[in-house]
């Protein structure tokens, strides 16, 4: 996985997580607890993907020439 791909993935996960946080708050206030859990899982998976992409990027970025 290239560096640009890692950048794209990380930016995409930020967008996803902002939307998920907004929807989570809405679901919480509306007492939609089942859908809240779905948003929560999506958000955590997205955060995990961001972390994985970062580790990949770091491996490439700091590789000795």
């Amino acid at each position: 996985m290239g560096k640009k791909t890692c950048w794209a993935i990380i930016i995409a996960t930020i967008v996803i997580n902002v939307v998920m946080l907004q929807w989570t708050v809405e679901a919480f206030l509306g007492r939609d607890y089942e859908i809240l859990l779905t948003y929560n899982v999506i958000s955590l998976v997205s955060a995990g993907i961001a972390l994985f992409a970062y580790l990949q990027w770091r491996k490439v970025e700091y590789k000795k020439q």
Binding site: T13, N17, M20, L21, A50, L51
Partner: peptide, 27 residues
């Protein structure tokens, strides 16, 4: 550039973790 990407990753993870208290409180 490197610091920016690290901050972006931190932001993404923080946003993801920020949804947990809502689920805990809901349960």
């Amino acid at each position: 550039r490197r610091a920016f990407l690290k901050t972006a990753v931190g932001t993404s993870v923080a946003l993801g973790v920020a949804t947990i208290p809502f689920s805990v409180k809901a349960m």
